[in-house]
């Protein structure tokens, strides 16, 4: 049980909420035109919570796309991101967030995403996300990812890891898989240095 609130507490809390609302309004207005966060996509994370891309605004974000049943390249994407994080100084590592967006909403249910996250030892920095097909196509379009679903249920897709700066703009991209790309790691550090 919470202790009863004083009138002052209530006002303060209302003010805080109002402030949040105004901040959110300002945020929506100010998102740069070339920001991925212009996209208002309905996503769900591996814990079943609804997720807004722009909720990561203000942080450096690594983003890539995958599907859980992929056996070849997608595990390497997870591994490469892990190596990229490890290549950062300890203090920086914790400040980076990761978004992994599935191509395959039909098979990547919340439960499957949860299992995939556990299999790759993804901690709280990671969000494994699903969205409806039409939404996935839009996210891929914004990220410049090409993919197509094959009759077998597999996906053909381009594989890259992108860095979003604090405003959600694509600041760097790497196609190197299996090892941390030094140029990309440098770009992540640069983005973090601008992070308040």
């Amino acid at each position: 049980m919470n202790p009863p609130l004083s009138r002052r507490d209530v006002l303060r809390r209302l003010g805080f909420v109002a402030g949040m609302w105004w901040a959110a309004r300002a945020e929506a207005r100010d998102i740069p035109g070339d920001s991925v966060y212009q996209l208002r996509a309905q996503l769900t994370d591996q814990d079943g919570r609804s997720f807004e891309l722009s909720s990561l605004r203000g942080q450096a974000v690594l983003v890539s796309m995958f599907y859980s049943s992929c056996e070849q390249v997608c595990p390497m994407i997870f591994e490469t991101i892990r190596l990229t994080l490890l290549a950062l100084p300890v203090a920086d590592r914790e400040r980076v967030r990761v978004m992994m967006i599935s191509f395959d909403p039909a098979r990547d249910s919340v439960a499957v995403l949860k299992a995939t996250a556990e299999a790759h030892q993804c901690d709280a920095r990671w969000a494994l996300l699903r969205a409806e097909d039409a939404e996935v196509r839009r996210i891929a379009a914004v990220l410049g990812v090409q993919y197509r679903r094959l009759a077998s249920g597999e996906f053909n897709h381009s594989s890259a890891i992108e860095l979003l700066d604090t405003e959600g703009r694509i600041a760097a991209r790497t196609g190197t898989l299996g090892a941390a790309d030094p140029g990309f790691v440098k770009a992540v550090r640069k983005a973090l240095s601008r992070q308040a």
């Binding site: 992929c70 056996e71 070849q72 390249v73 997608c74 390497m76 094959l150 077998s152 597999e154 996906f155 053909n156 897709h157 381009s158 594989s159 196609g175 898989l177 299996g178």
Partner: peptide, 11 residues
């Protein structure tokens, strides 16, 4: 080039 693309075969 499976390092860049996963899924079945080439197009």
């Amino acid at each position: 080039d499976t390092a860049k693309f996963c899924g079945a075969g080439a197009l």
